[in-house]
Amino acid sequence: MSYVKTDSEQLLLDDLQIEHSKYCFIREGISENNYLSSLERSLNTLGLLEPLVVHSDTRGEIHLVDGFKRAVLLKRNGARHCRVKVLSSETPLDYILNLLFLSQSHRISFSFVSRASFVNLCLDLGLENKQIINQFLPLLGFEGHETIMRNCAKVIKLPKLVLEFCDKKRLSMKQCVHLTHFSDELLTIVFSWKDILNLTVSLIEELLEGLETILRRESLDLYVLLKELGVDDLLMASISPQVKTEKLRRKIKIKKYPVLSRVNEKIEKTKNEMNLPCHVLLYRDQSIENHKLDFKIHIKKIEDLETALEKLQQTKTSVEKILEAL
């Protein structure tokens, strides 16, 4: 049985759901790039060589399945009609989704977020879990398991700004799922800093973790905490994004680890008082878990050894003090 009504037919573009097509799996505008201008040139010179594929649903609405970019360009260039192949309303949903996957596999496979968007589309359109698990998850490179579907559903609820970032940076499922543990409010704030600060994915995670822990521990409102940390002033300061980032990290760290910060501050003070020559280096565990100190001496000439040994002789009290704090 063929579900394609006719070879192709003319359709009024205004009658076609393009951006609002129920098969539009990721709602993003089309960005101007070389591919798009080349496609536009082709449409202007050769016309529409392959008809668009549309689905006529039971309510009589016509939804675009394949040819989103072409449809937008045709409309933009003033076309009123276009040739389409129509999938009848009886067409099984998984056939349409399979077609959609084949025609957009490059975009769908781009990132975890795009794959999750496709899974979510399958769910939204009412495809049975079993079919998604057995048919589409393996196609998308996932293991056929319910957990994957649950993860996709969770991730897709992230704020738009976050989803765009995860998609662009091609974050893994684990990284995306991790972000779902944070509130939308916190995510939106931290991700809004991405153009002001020097933020890598791991730094974003560190800031989120830090702020979330403090908020929970101290039962604070996010904006009260940000004010307390002086975040607004810091973000507006005339310093480089790198310096801003480091300052913010430090502020959050001190607030997250108050006891540890106090001990470390005390140790650093003692260490500075030791006035070690620059070729004598003192290392220790910043988490203060390991009760030990490591000295490293760079020796280029014999005098370096002599000055180091002489200085080390004088540091006994300070070393004792640091060890006591560890």
Partner: peptide, 17 residues
């Protein structure tokens, strides 16, 4: 939410003090 650090046995614990 407590003040915890990672130990050498790859476990989080309260800070030593």
């Amino acid at each position: 939410a407590a003040e915890m650090v990672l130990g050498d046995d790859h476990k989080m614990r309260y800070v030593k003090p």
